Amino acid sequence: MDTKAVVTRYYELANAGSWDAWCDLFAADQVMDEQLAGHVEGREKLRAMMAGFPGMYASFRNQPKELIVENDRAAVVSHISAVTPGGGRIEADVMNYFRVVDGAITYMANFHDTQPFRAALQTTA
């Protein structure tokens, strides 16, 4: 898959809740700088982290609004709408940066306001 196809698939799988297949989009030695989870290295560490993700949200959507691709790099502006099992609501605009090599995400970083997540996730504790 080319960069645009990989990044498009990233959002399709996330919105379908197919987290194992979503993790398969990443290279084995991937590096992620995630706003809430921090620095994550390795696909299997990411897979273990994502195993708990479905329990954090009763619903989760990350809708791309704008996608810019240049060779092996992509930037996506998106909007997350989520609800926690305790009813906490999350609405947040997000900026994701991707590097894709040989059809796999080798690096990803996301940037967003963490407050909507912290407030909503605290209502589940």
Results as ranks from 00 to 15, higher is better:
residue 121 L to S: 01
residue 80 I to N: 01
residue 53 F to Q: 15
residue 89 R to N: 06
residue 29 D to F: 14
residue 78 S to W: 00
residue 80 I to K: 00
residue 7 V to D: 13
residue 57 Y to Q: 02
residue 44 E to G: 11
residue 9 R to K: 15
residue 4 K to D: 15
residue 88 G to T: 03
residue 105 I to Y: 10
residue 94 V to A: 02
residue 48 A to I: 09
residue 38 G to Q: 05
residue 47 R to Q: 12
residue 32 M to E: 04
residue 107 Y to N: 02
residue 15 N to D: 05
residue 79 H to I: 03
residue 60 F to S: 00
residue 20 D to N: 11
residue 93 D to Q: 05
residue 27 A to R: 14
residue 94 V to P: 03
residue 75 A to F: 15
residue 33 D to T: 13
residue 115 Q to N: 08
residue 100 V to L: 04
residue 26 F to R: 13
residue 119 A to T: 09
residue 66 E to P: 08
residue 54 P to L: 07
residue 52 G to P: 09
residue 121 L to P: 02
residue 62 N to L: 08
residue 32 M to D: 01
residue 93 D to E: 06
residue 61 R to V: 07
residue 94 V to D: 04
residue 9 R to E: 10
residue 80 I to Y: 00
residue 14 A to P: 08
residue 78 S to Q: 08
residue 39 H to Y: 13
residue 19 W to S: 02
residue 13 L to P: 14
residue 59 S to Y: 13
residue 64 P to L: 04
residue 27 A to M: 09
residue 5 A to V: 05
residue 124 T to V: 14
residue 108 M to D: 00
residue 90 I to M: 07
residue 61 R to N: 06
residue 29 D to W: 14
residue 83 V to I: 11
residue 69 V to P: 09
residue 20 D to Q: 10
residue 65 K to M: 10
residue 8 T to F: 15
residue 53 F to G: 14
residue 58 A to T: 08
residue 17 G to T: 12
residue 105 I to W: 10
residue 5 A to G: 07
residue 69 V to Y: 08
residue 8 T to G: 07
residue 23 C to I: 10
residue 92 A to G: 04
residue 38 G to A: 03
residue 14 A to Y: 09
residue 89 R to I: 07
residue 60 F to C: 00
residue 63 Q to M: 08
residue 116 P to N: 04
residue 48 A to D: 07
residue 80 I to A: 01
residue 40 V to E: 09
residue 118 R to Q: 06
residue 47 R to E: 07
residue 89 R to C: 12
residue 45 K to C: 01
residue 87 G to T: 05
residue 53 F to W: 13
residue 44 E to C: 09
residue 12 E to L: 05
residue 63 Q to T: 14
residue 19 W to E: 01
residue 28 A to E: 04
residue 89 R to H: 01
residue 11 Y to R: 15
residue 115 Q to C: 06
residue 77 V to T: 12
residue 112 H to M: 11
residue 113 D to Q: 06
residue 73 R to W: 15
residue 122 Q to W: 01
residue 51 A to F: 04
residue 111 F to K: 09
residue 108 M to K: 15
residue 35 Q to E: 14
residue 83 V to W: 12
residue 42 G to N: 06
residue 59 S to G: 03
residue 6 V to A: 01
residue 7 V to Y: 08
residue 120 A to N: 09
residue 10 Y to T: 00
residue 108 M to C: 12
residue 81 S to T: 13
residue 78 S to I: 07
residue 87 G to R: 00
residue 56 M to C: 10
residue 23 C to S: 11
residue 60 F to L: 00
residue 36 L to C: 03
residue 31 V to L: 08
residue 111 F to T: 09
residue 95 M to Q: 06
residue 81 S to P: 04
residue 7 V to W: 12
residue 38 G to H: 12
residue 75 A to D: 01
residue 114 T to I: 10
residue 108 M to Y: 04
residue 64 P to K: 03
residue 66 E to V: 10
residue 69 V to K: 14
residue 111 F to E: 02
residue 109 A to C: 10
residue 29 D to H: 13
residue 71 N to C: 08
residue 59 S to T: 14
residue 74 A to G: 11
residue 60 F to Y: 15
residue 68 I to P: 01
residue 35 Q to D: 08
residue 73 R to G: 05
residue 15 N to A: 03
residue 74 A to C: 07
residue 86 G to R: 13
residue 63 Q to G: 02
residue 25 L to R: 05
residue 100 V to I: 06
residue 67 L to C: 05
residue 30 Q to P: 04
residue 23 C to R: 02
residue 94 V to W: 08
residue 60 F to D: 00
